[in-house]
Design a protein around this nucleic acid. Sequence first.
DNA 1: CACCAAATGATAATAATTCTCATTATCACG
DNA 2: CGTGATAATGAGAATTATTATCATTTGGTG
Lengths: 153, 153
Amino acid sequence: MKIGERWKRAFELSRKRITPSRKAIVEVLEEQRKHLSAEEIYSCLREKHKKVGIATVYRNLELLSQMGIVHRVNFGDGKEHYEIARIPALHHHHLVCTVCGRVIDYQDFRKEEHEFMEGLGRVLETKYDFLIQSHQLYFYGICKDCRLKEVGE
Amino acid sequence: MKIGERWKRAFELSRKRITPSRKAIVEVLEEQRKHLSAEEIYSCLREKHKKVGIATVYRNLELLSQMGIVHRVNFGDGKEHYEIARIPALHHHHLVCTVCGRVIDYQDFRKEEHEFMEGLGRVLETKYDFLIQSHQLYFYGICKDCRLKEVGE
DNA sequence: CACCAAATGATAATAATTCTCATTATCACG
DNA sequence: CGTGATAATGAGAATTATTATCATTTGGTG
Ligand SMILES: [Mn+2]
Ligand SMILES: [Mn+2]
Ligand SMILES: [Zn+2]
Ligand SMILES: [Zn+2]
């Protein structure tokens, strides 16, 4: 099932209204498939001549995150970023360069990783009486370019 | 080796000065062993009658994070939190309630998890030419109390 | 003890996000 | 297909976390 069809159903179920702003925000994230900040999404919308206020962008990113339609990710650069949620089979994680901020999406070991996380998640649910909804894994390090620059200096 | 002895050595090696502010900040984090925001650390220092400016708190938390003496963690509540780094054998991860913000430190499956992360890390290092320094795993969900409240409404 | 780069404190500046409130639009219902 | 209750929006103000500036102080080396 395409994510595009899915989110409309989710809106109906949760009794949230389907508005032009919401459609436009999801559209931008689906097209770009990148990690965009609220401000970047706002700019994209302006370029497309969709007039949506910045407050509405923030409000809806919050809502869409809670609904699981978008993922909010934080790379430690002082602002939140958002990306469209992929189907579970395409779930991915992040590799962050602590020097230049470059972020790599990786999905290697998707299956093993997913199994491991599922198993761990189940144990935690039982032990801590939590209902687990999602997880995020970040690896931090130094990318090739930044390592070369360091040596050069 | 106690972490307390270790960080002084790290300072000498990286040619950073051991100042009263830095000692005091590490001290607070070692005593409290919690996830404190910069502002909370600043308050603790004032209570202990150590006069350290807020800017110095931020500056040193940045430095201590880079040195690996403290860990900067983000639970999605709009501010960074800091905790003293534990020795690798006591490495832990986080379980975050998306409703009330409660955070649980867990260290179950420490060994299996660590092995898994090490293995995954090595593959990523090779494939993406990254030098990996650390990783963080977050599980998000709803805690027991928040689930009970939801039903009550 | 003197020197000097590094560190600090006070405060201003910036940047991200949230709040307020008057106006507009969605959609369930008749 | 209207209509009304109520959710959503936009503009801008307000708030909050974090960073920058710069004159002053200090740690550590010799
Ligand atoms: Mn991603
Ligand atoms: Mn912790
Ligand atoms: Zn880099
Ligand atoms: Zn909770």
